[in-house]
Amino acid sequence: MFEIIGKQNLNQLVRRLDIRADLLVPKLKAGQFVAVMPDCFSRRVPMNVYEVDIRRRCFSLIFEERDAETAKLGALRINDRLFAVNGPYGTPVLAEKVGTVLFIGEGIGLASIAFLCRSFKQAGNKVIGIAGFAERNSSVLENQLRLNCSKFHVMYKDGMHDRRGDILAPFKKALAEEKPVRIYAHATAQSVKDISLLAANDKVPLWVNMIGLLDPRPSFSDTAMLVINGEPYSPARYGVWIKAGQMDVNSFVRDNEALKEYAGCRKNEAALSASKNVWARLQKFIWG
């Protein structure tokens, strides 16, 4: 169970893993997420699912190596096994035919967007995609998104190919010209704030992926609750795609940033150095 049957390096830090999970795969739908433990010493990390392949009985994760757990995931090779994969969590996003749907994402957030893009495209919608990257070298999934979008815009902050800037400019243009009936966004907290203001002005329903509120927590738990607009909310049950009207976006931005700072300053230094030691020994064992 949870054997890695495929691996791809998408760029210097971003990896794709195809993981076999006979029981889980037939039940995984677009918009859901899983909790992953690379080994028995890891914390449980919530991750959006990128793709599901029923025929090969596997699902795919795309992630960026940025902490101990994702580094361990990135070091795994084909035929290695993950210690645990739990799910599917969240309510599937129902990809029905509604007209024009706009997807906007930054960086690694595009992995969760891509699954929805495919689903809505297959349902017969006009799909507009907007992707933002810090630089050309950090771009991922451009071709995949281009294939699944009727129109696709990509912006680089370092200004390659005259596409300098952030995602807001093409977003404003798409709002005005394409008149989408729905928007799905997975971007940085600040971008989400700006996107939600623009979407609210045009009265277009916006769904935001808030896995960023779960990830900095010490470890994912099925029963952990968030409080959204004063009501308890279970991400494991209801999912990480939340309608912007359901939650106060300003609180989301603040809590997201605070959690990251909390995770950084509260991290037990001994545990951090221990994880580096474990990681160093693992690397030495694998590569000599």
Partner: peptide, 22 residues
């Protein structure tokens, strides 16, 4: 409950586990 679960089941802050102390 979450604190207990993190400490007990996930060994937060304990070597060689990587769940951070919080």
């Amino acid at each position: 409950a979450e604190m207990l679960s993190l400490t007990r089941a996930m060994h937060a802050g304990q070597e060689p586990y990587t769940t951070p102390g919080f």
